[in-house]
């Protein structure tokens, strides 16, 4: 597959404070995004995720390094014609109505009248805002702003879409809907570049990820390669036993009334525990093996980084 976005050795520093002091935010970032994939760009707050995005979109100029989008310079109009961008907590022209807002962005792509109207209608339907077409953006809720933001990012039917924390501030239903839209975009052949803190969502939908810590990419690759199938521990919930019975078998996590939840780390301890339950006529309510998650890897890497 061809790389649609190639970032090489990106450096960026800012001068901060009254007596300007140089602070290096990006310290040589390199990665590439392949056509048709959902690429997750992860990192703790202040790692430089948004700075990387801003460099890529031409909002700020890197001190050093190269960025190519579809083989063109990232600042060229050819590249910008083919991308879409939804910023983190989007701020839009609140004096415009939903319809006017999309119409404005469509004009920047010189879309014809008929094509423009059709695109706006279908995008409003896609993000579920058909009824808000005549409502001023100042009256939109945060979730609605996020949706209209996604609609403007898709106004030119882009091949590469940059989404900065798209799921932030949404309720669980909103998150699910947005996740579905992202998956649908992928199915339509679009490439998605996704910055997010919400690791479960990334884990659910991303093909490849890059983990950024302190301005450096410390790991990147396919999600399956990063997350192993190894069982870390088993979470057991049971009742009818006292904590003293369970000593040496696992680590109690919580207890509510008769119910105790404990983490069991060795497999032979599980067998012993099941035997004990049968012996004492107690009851097991659940037994869930926990494999390694992206979150575990992320926390570990950030700690090391």
């Amino acid at each position: 597959m061809a790389a649609v976005l190639k970032v090489e050795n990106l450096h960026k520093s800012f001068k901060v404070g009254f007596i300007p002091k140089k602070r290096e935010i990006l310290k040589g970032i390199s990665f590439s995004v392949e056509a048709g994939e959902i690429f997750g760009y992860l990192g703790p707050n202040g790692a430089g995720k948004t700075t990387t995005l801003k460099c890529t979109l031409g909002l700020i100029f890197p001190d050093q390094g190269q960025i190519e989008i579809f083989g063109h310079s990232h600042l060229s109009l050819e590249a910008k014609e083919r991308i879409g961008y939804l910023p983190e907590s989007p701020y839009f022209y609140e004096y415009l109505t939903g319809g006017e807002f999309l119409d404005f962005y469509a004009r920047l792509f010189l879309l014809g009248k008929k094509e423009k109207e059709e695109r706006i209608r279908s995008l409003l339907r896609l993000v579920g805002l058909e009824r808000a077409a005549r409502l001023q953006l100042r009256k939109f809720s945060r979730g609605m702003l996020q949706r209209i933001g996604l609609a403007q990012a898709l106004i030119n039917d882009p091949e590469l879409v940059f989404l900065d924390e798209p799921l932030g501030g949404l309720d669980p239903l909103g998150r699910k809907e947005l996740r579905d839209i992202i998956i649908r975009l992928k199915r339509e052949g679009k490439t998605i570049f996704l910055c997010s803190h919400i690791l479960q969502d990334i884990e659910m939908i991303c093909d490849r990820v890059a983990i950024l810590v302190g301005g450096r990419v410390i790991s990147q690759g396919a999600l399956e390669a990063l997350v192993s199938e190894k069982i870390l521990y088993t979470e057991v919930t049971l009742s009818g036993l006292s904590e003293s019975d369970l000593e040496g078998l696992g680590e109690p996590v919580s207890s509510h009334g008769d119910r105790i939840m404990l983490k069991v780390f060795q497999e032979d301890n599980i067998e012993r525990l099941v035997a004990l339950v049968q012996d004492k006529k107690a009851r097991i309510h659940s037994l869930v093996p926990r494999t390694e998650t992206l979150e575990d890897i992320f926390v570990e890497m950030v700690r090391q980084g």
Partner: peptide, 14 residues
């Protein structure tokens, strides 16, 4: 200040 320029500059305008 309101960051509306972010979406604008990422569009194909100079």
């Amino acid at each position: 200040d309101k960051k509306t320029i972010y979406t604008l500059i990422s569009k194909p305008i100079r």
